[in-house]
Simulated scan of single mutants.
Amino acid sequence: MNYSPKISIITPTWNRCHLIGRVYNCLQEQTYKNFEWIVGDDGSDDETEIMVQKIASSSPFPIYYLRSSLHIGKPKIDNSALSICTGEFILWCDSDDILLPNALENLVSEWSNLPPESMNSFIGVAALYKTKSSVLNKQITKGINFQCKLIDLEFKHLIEEDMLLFFKSTYLKSNRFPEEDLIVPESSLWSKFYNQNILVITDVLGIKEYNSVDSVSFHNKIKYARGHAFCLSITTPFHSKYLTFLQILGRTIKFIRYSFHGDLTNKQASTMWGSVCPRFYYILCHVPAFLLVMYDVLRKKVERTHLEYLKNSINTYISYEKYMPSIDPNSDINQLK
């Protein structure tokens, strides 16, 4: 049977068997049914595989279970998931996230309301998340949707917290996240689309849970330094025209600090940073950067996560299983009305 899902939902996970069932339940409850689910297992040693197999045996939608033999990191898992997505649109639902029942329906509906002649200039739709305590980016006026360049979300509308991003797959599948560490911030890829338009809707369509056990959002250690260094080197040239000179110096200091912890050579770091900062000031920034490095080392705050990535990337292999439903998710009864 030939399936043509409109949406691919990616869930990267690592040792979160206890949360996979919750993600599946929120997908089951979606009022829009034409989607596939890609679970990217980053070398879990819990019962994630058993849980996915159990879920897949009765799932009403297609499931791809992608598994790495070793812990290889989110960028590699996300890139591997992107390579097998078949949907027209892609969104991420992390293992500690929940999509509200009307999330997919609202996203597809808002996209469909765009004038056909302007759709080619849009990368997708952005919506709001909430946590248990508050709505993220609540400075956005409720009920007033707007359009802007992707880069304007941060520098014009002052968006600093996560948003639910619903992107056209053609943009994502032709690009990749940098594979340099277990975590590389997603803006390293989004920066390639900064000049594309995005439709921002003020509906809350998902729930974020930042305080989950082993959440990468909260830790007291300096982790993923190499990944952060690469992200800074990629995004700062796009941001520079919005930044003051002091802000550029601050980023330069942070970049040097992360580069050291990420075991990048001086030559590598200098080449990556390029002309973001004048050479004299780049050299001058090494003084406060190395004071911070010494502070980090003395306080034993650094975890060189990139070493695990580099070691495992040599020996890992990634396989996947495809589980198809017994009911065609493309049937008329399941389509958005």
Score class of each variant (00 low, 15 high):
residue 83 S to L: 14
residue 45 D to H: 10
residue 25 N to W: 02
residue 93 C to K: 07
residue 34 N to L: 12
residue 63 I to E: 12
residue 41 D to Q: 08
residue 71 H to I: 14
residue 18 H to P: 01
residue 98 I to N: 06
residue 62 P to H: 09
residue 87 G to E: 15
residue 42 D to V: 11
residue 48 T to Y: 07
residue 72 I to V: 15
residue 96 D to W: 04
residue 49 E to M: 09
residue 82 L to H: 15
residue 102 N to F: 12
residue 13 T to A: 01
residue 48 T to D: 04
residue 69 S to C: 11
residue 36 E to L: 14
residue 103 A to C: 05
residue 101 P to C: 13
residue 59 S to Q: 13
residue 21 G to H: 01
residue 96 D to H: 08
residue 56 A to C: 07
residue 80 S to K: 11
residue 53 Q to W: 03
residue 29 E to R: 08
residue 64 Y to L: 10
residue 85 C to H: 05
residue 19 L to N: 03
residue 70 L to Y: 13
residue 54 K to N: 02
residue 85 C to Y: 14
residue 30 Q to G: 09
residue 17 C to P: 01
residue 104 L to D: 09
residue 39 V to F: 03
residue 23 V to N: 09
residue 37 W to Y: 13
residue 13 T to D: 07
residue 13 T to F: 00
residue 61 F to G: 09
residue 17 C to E: 07
residue 89 F to R: 10
residue 54 K to F: 06
residue 51 M to F: 01
residue 43 G to A: 01
residue 100 L to H: 09
residue 73 G to T: 14
residue 76 K to Q: 10
residue 78 D to R: 07
residue 50 I to V: 12
residue 60 P to D: 10
residue 58 S to A: 14
residue 74 K to I: 02
residue 14 W to F: 15
residue 51 M to T: 06
residue 74 K to S: 07
residue 103 A to H: 05
residue 48 T to C: 08
residue 30 Q to V: 04
residue 96 D to N: 08
residue 39 V to N: 00
residue 27 L to F: 09
residue 89 F to V: 04
residue 32 Y to T: 10
residue 94 D to K: 04
residue 55 I to L: 00
residue 43 G to K: 03
residue 63 I to N: 14
residue 68 S to A: 15
residue 35 F to P: 00
residue 16 R to P: 01
residue 18 H to A: 14
residue 21 G to P: 00
residue 90 I to V: 14
residue 98 I to S: 09
residue 22 R to M: 00
residue 54 K to W: 04
residue 51 M to A: 02
residue 84 I to N: 05
residue 81 A to Q: 06
residue 67 R to P: 10
residue 25 N to A: 10
residue 89 F to N: 10
residue 98 I to C: 06
residue 27 L to R: 08
residue 57 S to G: 09
residue 30 Q to E: 07
residue 37 W to T: 00
residue 57 S to L: 04
residue 21 G to Q: 04
residue 36 E to M: 13
residue 55 I to H: 04
residue 23 V to Y: 10
residue 58 S to I: 13
residue 40 G to P: 08
residue 80 S to Q: 12
residue 32 Y to K: 12
residue 94 D to R: 02
